[in-house]
């Protein structure tokens, strides 16, 4: 994959579409003019897309996007790059976003959500409505309600990109601290100890 080296003042948006079934609609949505304009307005310098097996979709759309900005003579202010998979996981990409105070836009798989949130980055989650699995949608709604992430949709992705700027200041810490809040919480280690009678 292409390495992105960050200069001072860079701001990265990382889009991940999942390893199993590629989320084509999300690739299309992020490369739409409205989304790219929203990224530029919010000061993003890099857009990095993990497109999985949908390279053809990425290549098509990137061509269109570049053609459009060539005519407007502001091409180059947003660098767009993509890669298929990373066998070492997406840690490096999440780290780039974390360091540059950027944003992650992800499909609604629980694995990606958990990994991205552990990097303390603002996260926009886009449920794949084409999948006949409404658990993704339920999870995204519940997580947004708890203030952990923003739920976006492929039609109005630019709205979510704008909202992310304000959201980064008020997002809830994840994983939640296992104390206080509105009710008693416990860690899983405590539940194990309790079951075994290991009470210190």
């Amino acid at each position: 994959m292409a390495e992105v080296t960050l200069e001072q003042g860079s701001k990265v948006c990382f889009v991940t579409t999942g390893a199993t079934a590629p989320f084509i609609a999300l690739i299309e949505a992020i490369l739409k003019p409205t989304s790219i304009d929203a990224l530029k307005d919010a000061g993003y310098t890099h857009l990095l897309i993990q497109y999985g097996t949908a390279k053809h979709v990425y290549d098509d759309r990137i061509y269109d996007a570049r053609m459009r900005y060539r005519s407007e003579a502001d091409q180059g202010t947003l660098h767009i790059d993509g890669f298929d998979f990373n066998s070492d996981g997406l840690k490096d990409q999440f780290k780039l976003v974390q360091d540059s105070k950027g944003v992650v836009i992800s499909h609604a798989g629980s694995g990606s959500i958990l990994e991205a949130l552990r990097h303390q980055v603002p996260l926009i989650v886009v449920p794949n409505t084409a999948l006949l699995d409404n658990h993704q949608d339920e999870l995204a709604i519940a997580m947004e309600k708890s203030g952990y992430l923003l739920k976006g949709d492929i039609i109005q992705l630019s709205h979510s990109i704008k909202k992310a700027e304000d959201f980064r200041k008020r997002m809830t810490q994840f994983p939640p601290v296992t104390s206080g809040k509105h009710r008693e919480t416990k860690s899983f280690a405590a539940i194990m100890d309790e079951t075994m009678g290991f009470l210190d």
């Binding site: 629980s110 694995g111 958990l114 899983f188 194990m192 009678g197």
Partner: peptide, 28 residues
Amino acid sequence: PLKSRWRPTRVMIVLGSGGHTHEMFYLL
């Protein structure tokens, strides 16, 4: 739960496909 004295303890951890395994190691 009854308080029990420390003793060596064997724990069995059942792993499954990708997502379940990921969650299991977060739990542990």
